[in-house]
């Protein structure tokens, strides 16, 4: 190892510690009996007290249910739209309006959320005055607001996945007389299915997690889970939030491990198929 390699290795380890210490501290302190988050009450810990508090909090449960419904709808809509935009950008070559579409699918990723939130709310208010819809802010405006930035991420994922594949399979199918729509269902979609799945999961997480745009477009009466958490932690540290964080971290960790195993198996199978095909050609 050169000296440079040694330095960057140390930085990597320190950086990973930096990324994981806050998460680990929440998990550990969620089992702490003391109300003071950073004093470990050894006599009564570990305890599941804060999990009990969390699950008897009607406001939190209600908000979680709303967030779940919004995230499921927003991620599904944005996967379909992002899939379309990604295919158009990666496979259609130059077409009229390509720069517009490209610009509109990359800008939401970096756009400061207060600006997106404000502009969406003002649009909804103007629409309501002009055509009487949406009737007040709520679940529908939340979903519409989330789709715009979620689909940008899906588009990037799909586009870069398609850029990594050569088009020879699709072209071969077309040469054999398959119609483009059939080529899409039989070849393109199965090829990019992992990208669609990860785009959907990413959208779900982003929507589930969104605070700022939701604050603008939720309207009074419908609070998402991040909105409830935000109003809790603005008033100071509250230990049941640690319990909530621990539950979310464990769900994500399980999901990621399952997804990794699934992708790996898929990849192995396709490699084996490719080897068999190569052997058959010999």
């Amino acid at each position: 190892m050169t000296r440079r390699g040694w330095f960057s290795g140390v930085m990597l380890v320190l950086g990973l510690i930096f990324l994981y210490v806050p998460i680990a501290s929440m998990v550990v302190y969620s089992f702490n009996a003391s109300r003071l988050v950073t004093v470990w009450d050894a006599a009564h810990s570990p305890t599941l007290k804060w999990y009990g508090v969390l699950f008897s909090d009607g406001q939190v449960l209600h908000a979680a249910w709303l967030s779940l419904r919004v995230a499921l709808s927003a991620s599904t809509i944005s996967s379909v739209l992002g899939l379309m935009a990604g295919i158009a950008l990666a496979r259609f070559g130059p077409f009229r309006g390509r720069s517009l579409l490209l610009g509109m699918t990359t800008a939401p990723i970096v756009m400061p959320e207060v600006i997106s939130g404000l502009s969406l709310l003002l649009l909804f208010i103007a629409l309501e005055r002009a055509v009487g819809w949406p009737h007040g802010m709520g679940m529908s405006t939340l979903i519409l607001g989330h789709v715009s930035f979620c689909m940008a991420y899906v588009t990037v994922v799909i586009q870069s996945r398609l850029a990594g594949f050569d088009q020879s399979l699709e072209e071969a199918a077309m040469d054999l007389g398959a119609r483009p729509v059939r080529v899409f269902w039989a070849i393109t979609l199965p090829l990019i299915l992992p990208a669609v799945v990860s785009g959907w999961l990413l959208s779900f997480t982003l929507s589930w997690d969104d605070l700022v745009i939701s604050e603008f477009v939720a309207g009074p009466g419908s609070s998402t889970l991040p909105m409830v958490i935000f109003s809790k932690v603005r008033l100071g540290v509250s230990p049941d939030v640690n319990a909530l964080a621990t539950i979310m971290v464990s769900i994500v960790a399980t999901g990621v491990v399952v997804a990794a195993v699934w992708m790996r198996r898929r990849q192995r199978r396709s490699e084996r198929d490719a080897q068999l095909a190569a052997a058959a050609n010999l």
């Binding site: 806050p22 501290s25 302190y29 958490i229 935000f230 994500v252 960790a253 990794a260």
Partner: peptide
């Protein structure tokens, strides 16, 4: 994966964790 993983858990909660630290 270790770099991306925190991105999948709530941004708000990870910022909140720093208050406790």
């Amino acid at each position: 994966m270790l770099i991306v993983l925190p991105f999948w858990t709530s941004f708000l909660l990870r910022v909140y964790a720093w208050i406790g630290l």
